[in-house]
Every structure is written in structure tokens, then in C-alpha cells.
């Protein structure tokens, strides 16, 4: 009997495919998310939009919140650790969190090294903007990748940019001659062996979700069309007018992303989505996607 194998860790992410993972800040929100059909919840002290507004240093959530959420839902519970903060990650593992997000939404603890995720029994998800970043994280042991997007903005443009970039690079690597792969590994800063796997299979070695800016059912469906395996919704649900309705509509739109009649129906009278931020109005220093490498 073996625990924490890469098959068990990556397999957990495979089971989340086609689903929506929702940020929640307390037990009540977690119950709403589960009832709406979320495949997992991310237990947080503040959603990204509030982290952005509050400023200062943002850290791992208070364990009380994590435990409170674990008590009320039967779906997996995820939580965020700061980039490079392996002690926060060990604490979350000790709490029995099902998945750790080494996340740029929190203030990085290490500007050089990400967590060595092979050291953990619990699986990790990490953000990436391109194939090189994705494969570096997988090289460090990440079992799931998500786009970084621009968290807490309610603006899908950065998630689209990152998913388009990733998919276009995957297609390029797939069609390359094997002779060209080492040079490409150097260009994108990816481990050669992992790039070779992408070349052979035409996909990343792990599940790839969309995150960072999903605010409406159409946003979720758009990301599925671009090749996402599923969707994270951070501030989009509990910063909207009617969280319950938004949550249900985003779940359905993710399953039936090619059914535009259904998405039209789901989008009717939803109320106001989260307000959102125009990306060009964000100073570079306020862009969370620039955190990590």
C-alpha cells in the first residue's frame, strides 16, 4: 500500500475535471458552494478582491476557517500557502487539507524558490502563464496547473491570455521535430523530459484549470472552449449580487459549455456580477500574476 504517489496526487485532480472550484470564506458559503454543485472549495480568510483592497501582507488562512469548512462539506477542501512557504504548506497538510494552492494571491515568502512539492503527501496546484512556468511547477511536483489570470479583478482577459499562450505553445511543441526540443526547453525554461512528454501526448502531464478573473457563466464556458479542464472561481461568486444563482449557473455553463441556448437561459436575470477592474488601470506592482516565476 502506497500513499502520496504521483498517480494518486494527479488522479485527485483528474476527478475534478469538468467542475468548478469555488473560493469560500466561512462554513455558510461552503455549504452554498457544495449545494450549487462545486467539486471543491478553497477555504480562505479573504477572497482575492478583498485581499487586493486590503493591501498589506496576505498569509495562509487561520486554521479555524479551514476546519470549520472541513466540518460542513463532504467535497474536497483546498487552501492556499504563500509561494515558497513550505511551513505553511506543512501546516495545511497537517490539517488534512485535500489540495494546497501555492498561490500568487498571497504575498510570496520566497522570491527565488517555490516549494519542493515532492516532499508532500498532499497534492499541489500552482499558477502558470505559459508552458515553461507550468512545466517548472510540475518539475517541482505540482499535480495540477491553473492559469494565473489576474485574481480579484473579475476581468477574464489575463486568464484568456495565459490559456491561449499555453495551448498555442503545446501545439507548437507537439509539431516540432525531436531535434528541436532541447533548444525549445532552453527557450521556455522547461525541464527537457517534461517537454518531451508534451511533445508525445499533446497535452500537459497534469490537469489544467482556468483561474483569475472568471465572473460569469459565459466566462467559464469561454475558458472551457479554450482548452481548460475546469474552472476556479474566486471572488466571482461571493462578490456577485446573488451568489447562489451565480454558483449554480457557472457550474451548469462549465458542464454544457457548447450549449449556447442553455447559457443564454442561465445568464438571464442573474443580477450584477462583481464590479471588476480594467487591467491597464492596475500598476505592474499590483499585478499578482507577476509573483513567482
Amino acid at each position: 500500500m502506497e500513499t502520496g504517489t504521483s498517480r494518486v496526487k494527479r488522479g485527485m485532480a483528474e476527478m475534478q475535471k469538468g467542475g468548478v472550484i469555488m473560493d469560500v470564506m466561512n462554513a455558510e458559503q461552503a455549504k452554498i458552494a457544495e449545494a450549487a454543485g462545486a467539486v471543491a472549495v478553497m477555504a480562505l480568510e479573504r477572497v482575492p478582491a478583498d485581499i487586493r483592497a486590503a493591501g498589506g501582507v496576505s498569509r495562509m488562512a487561520d486554521p479555524t476557517i479551514v476546519e470549520e469548512v472541513q466540518k460542513v462539506v463532504s467535497i474536497p477542501v483546498m487552501a492556499k500557502a504563500r509561494i515558497g512557504h513550505f511551513v505553511e504548506a506543512k501546516v495545511l497538510e497537517a490539517l488534512g487539507v485535500d489540495y494546497i494552492d501555492e498561490s500568487e494571491v498571497l504575498t510570496p515568502a520566497d522570491e527565488v524558490y517555490h516549494i519542493n512539492k515532492h516532499d508532500f503527501t498532499v497534492p499541489f496546484v500552482c499558477g502558470a502563464r505559459d508552458i515553461g512556468e507550468a512545466l517548472r511547477r510540475i518539475g517541482e511536483g505540482a499535480s495540477m496547473i491553473r492559469t494565473k489570470g489576474e485574481p480579484g479583478t473579475g476581468n477574464i482577459v489575463e486568464a484568456v491570455r495565459h490559456m491561449r499562450m499555453m495551448m498555442s505553445q503545446i501545439r507548437k511543441v507537439q509539431s516540432m521535430s525531436k531535434d528541436e526540443l532541447m533548444a525549445e526547453a532552453k527557450n521556455v525554461g522547461a525541464p527537457y523530459e517534461l517537454l518531451l512528454q508534451v511533445h508525445e501526448t499533446g497535452k500537459l502531464p497534469v490537469v489544467n484549470f482556468a483561474a483569475g478573473g472568471v465572473a460569469t457563466p459565459s466566462d467559464a464556458a469561454l475558458m472551457m472552449h479554450l482548452g481548460s479542464d475546469g474552472v476556479f472561481v474566486g471572488s466571482g461568486i461571493f462578490k456577485s449580487d446573488n451568489p447562489e444563482k451565480f454558483a449554480r449557473a457557472i457550474v451548469e455553463a462549465t458542464t454544457h459549455y457548447t450549449d449556447f441556448d442553455l447559457i443564454a437561459k442561465l445568464s438571464k436575470n442573474l443580477g450584477t456580477p462583481m464590479k471588476g477592474i480594467e487591467i491597464s488601470k492596475l500598476e505592474v506592482t499590483q499585478r499578482m500574476q507577476e509573483r513567482g516565476w
Binding site: M1, E2, T3, T5, V8, S74, P76, P123
Partner: peptide, 14 residues
């Protein structure tokens, strides 16, 4: 019985 073996860290292969 759902989640009978525990949480994800208890997941395994055999």
C-alpha cells in the same frame, strides 16, 4: 460509506 479511508493524504494505491 463516502470518503471511508479519510482525506486526500490517506489516498493510496495497492
Amino acid at each position: 460509506i463516502r470518503n471511508a479511508f479519510g482525506r486526500q493524504r490517506e489516498s493510496f494505491e495497492a
